[in-house]
Simulated assay, not measured.
Amino acid sequence: MAQQPSTRLYVMDGVTEGTVLALIGVLLGTAGTLVGQYLATRVEVQRDRRQRTEAARTECKEAILGLLAAAQRIELILDRRGLGLPTSTDPADEKLHGLWLAKKAVELTCAHETAQAAHDYTKVLHTHMRNTVPSEQNPTKREYRYAFMEAARNALESGRPRIRR
């Protein structure tokens, strides 16, 4: 005798039906909670990344401004010397010390390109202050200042075109 396919319908009673629907509800609720937590965590990670990037940029910017302030004090002394005017009463050694210290802050907080440009600019200013190289062989501080400014602008991602000289 050949078996015929069963055509019986399985009917759930009220208790079984309620239990299955409750389990489906729990599964959907759990899935929704997990997806919500994933999305919230993802947003938080992105926010944290942006905050860290902004903090690093701010730290780099402060270091750059510190170097520029120290360099400006040195350049004032050099300009006054070049014009034959008396220099300020502050010792030049203290100014040079401040300049080298500010350069180190740039090295610690900024990218290699900016740190190298800061080092080169500081070295040229130091050389000019100490008059250790004859004036015809002395590198121009203007070129090194320009190189540092462009490296700093790139480090701060200004998105602006290069400064024309």
Rank of each mutant, 00 (worst) to 15 (best):
M1G: 12
Q3T: 13
P5I: 01
T7C: 08
T7Y: 07
V11E: 13
M12T: 09
G14I: 14
V15P: 03
V15S: 11
V15N: 07
E17N: 10
T19A: 12
T19N: 05
L23C: 07
G25H: 06
G25M: 08
G25P: 10
L27T: 11
A31P: 01
G32K: 01
T33L: 15
L34A: 13
L34F: 08
A40W: 10
T41C: 04
V43C: 04
E44M: 08
Q46I: 11
T53Y: 12
T53S: 12
A56P: 11
A56D: 10
R57L: 14
R57Y: 05
R57D: 03
C60I: 05
A63W: 10
A63S: 15
I64W: 04
L65Y: 14
G66I: 00
L67R: 01
L67I: 01
L67H: 00
L67M: 11
L68Y: 02
L68D: 02
A69V: 03
A71D: 01
A71W: 00
I77H: 09
L78Q: 02
L78A: 06
L83G: 05
L85D: 15
P86S: 11
T87G: 08
T87V: 15
S88Y: 09
D90V: 15
P91G: 14
D93C: 07
D93R: 08
L96R: 09
H97E: 14
G98D: 14
G98T: 09
L99F: 02
L99E: 01
W100L: 14
W100M: 10
L101M: 15
A102V: 02
K103E: 02
V106N: 01
E107N: 13
L108F: 12
C110P: 08
T114R: 12
T114P: 05
Y121H: 11
T122P: 00
K123L: 08
L125C: 00
L125G: 00
H126G: 08
T127K: 05
T127I: 03
H128F: 04
N131D: 07
P134Y: 08
P134D: 11
S135G: 04
N138L: 13
T140K: 13
K141D: 04
K141R: 11
E143T: 10
Y144N: 09
Y146S: 02
M149G: 04
M149R: 12
E150I: 04
A151R: 06
A152H: 03
N154Q: 13
A155F: 05
E157N: 14
S158T: 15
P161N: 00
R162P: 05
